[in-house]
Amino acid sequence: MKWDPEKYVQFADHRDRPFFDLTGRIAANAPKLVVDLGCGPGPLTRSLAERWPEARVVGLDSSDEMVQKARATQHSPGLEFEHADATTWMPDPGTDVLVSNAMLQWIPGHQELMAKWLDALRPGAWFAVQVPGNFSSPSHVLMRELAASDRWAPQLAGVLRHKDAVGEPADYLKILLAAGFEADVWETTYGQILSGKDPVLEWVRGTALRPVLAKLNAAEAAEFEADYARLVARAYPSFEGADGGLLTMFPFRRIFMVGRKR
């Protein structure tokens, strides 16, 4: 599955806010090694380097496109970007802060993987993760139902995950506590306002729709997107803003976890 860095940052204001809400709860004073696992195109990783200018800050991503974009556009002292497969990666024993923002939902069995990372981190290390909690929202339910329809099931069966995509806040809290962390776990539903034509389709093109698009040719992808756009337009009706433009309310639930190892 290929990622499009430009499409991913199309809604940067909305996508960035959870990152800063997450990392704002990290109270590390002078970390030496900070890792951003699933760094994407890198501007948020750069913000960590600017926050801790004396640290070595490493952004890791499995997407060559994302790593190349980050290396080309994000520069700061101590900042570097590398290719890594999170399913086999383990933190360096000297890691002081490990951040992962909106990445773990892509990995089946990530709760077990997370427990291994927590065990490998040294006492005093910080761990901060955010995952989307909207897999039961219309945007995802309608996409799965469409993919499972007679028209698309032969090509898309099993492509979209749901039940094992993410856990509930209590699940992550138990993992952190079992690993010896002082933990803070919470959830937030952002009342996001999107503008323009087919804004929900535009949003999912950068993330949730990527596995579908990877399985279809251009003509099929256009047909699937047209069907999906009609469905979500009914689920998320537009309304007229003060300036006469079309606006759409798109609630988005996020799950956050931050902890420090005792």
Rank of each mutant, 00 (worst) to 15 (best):
residue 2 K to L: 11
residue 3 W to Y: 12
residue 6 E to Q: 11
residue 9 V to L: 06
residue 9 V to Y: 00
residue 9 V to H: 03
residue 10 Q to K: 10
residue 10 Q to T: 09
residue 13 D to E: 14
residue 14 H to T: 12
residue 16 D to E: 14
residue 17 R to T: 11
residue 19 F to I: 00
residue 20 F to M: 07
residue 23 T to H: 05
residue 23 T to F: 14
residue 24 G to M: 11
residue 27 A to T: 01
residue 30 A to G: 07
residue 32 K to C: 11
residue 35 V to A: 08
residue 42 G to C: 04
residue 44 L to V: 14
residue 44 L to F: 03
residue 44 L to K: 11
residue 45 T to K: 05
residue 45 T to G: 06
residue 45 T to I: 06
residue 46 R to A: 15
residue 47 S to P: 10
residue 49 A to D: 07
residue 51 R to G: 15
residue 51 R to T: 15
residue 52 W to N: 02
residue 59 G to H: 06
residue 62 S to Y: 02
residue 64 D to L: 15
residue 65 E to V: 05
residue 66 M to L: 00
residue 68 Q to M: 06
residue 74 Q to V: 00
residue 78 G to R: 12
residue 80 E to W: 00
residue 83 H to L: 14
residue 84 A to N: 13
residue 84 A to G: 11
residue 89 W to P: 13
residue 90 M to A: 13
residue 98 L to W: 10
residue 101 N to Q: 13
residue 101 N to D: 03
residue 103 M to F: 13
residue 103 M to Y: 08
residue 104 L to G: 02
residue 105 Q to C: 06
residue 107 I to D: 06
residue 119 D to I: 00
residue 122 R to Y: 00
residue 125 A to G: 12
residue 126 W to H: 15
residue 127 F to A: 15
residue 129 V to I: 15
residue 130 Q to A: 10
residue 132 P to N: 00
residue 137 S to R: 09
residue 139 S to Q: 07
residue 139 S to K: 03
residue 143 M to L: 04
residue 143 M to V: 03
residue 144 R to G: 01
residue 145 E to N: 05
residue 145 E to F: 01
residue 148 A to W: 00
residue 148 A to C: 02
residue 150 D to E: 02
residue 156 L to G: 05
residue 158 G to W: 04
residue 161 R to F: 04
residue 164 D to S: 08
residue 164 D to Q: 12
residue 165 A to P: 01
residue 172 Y to K: 02
residue 173 L to W: 03
residue 173 L to G: 08
residue 179 A to T: 14
residue 180 G to V: 08
residue 180 G to L: 08
residue 181 F to I: 07
residue 186 W to S: 09
residue 187 E to R: 11
residue 189 T to R: 07
residue 193 I to N: 09
residue 195 S to C: 12
residue 195 S to E: 15
residue 198 D to Y: 13
residue 201 L to M: 12
residue 204 V to E: 06
residue 208 A to H: 07
residue 210 R to Y: 00
residue 214 A to Q: 08
residue 217 N to H: 13
residue 218 A to K: 15
residue 221 A to T: 13
residue 225 E to M: 13
residue 227 D to H: 11
residue 234 R to S: 15
residue 236 Y to N: 01
residue 244 G to Y: 02
residue 246 L to V: 06
residue 247 L to P: 03
residue 251 P to S: 06
residue 254 R to T: 11
residue 255 I to N: 03
residue 259 G to P: 12
residue 260 R to D: 11
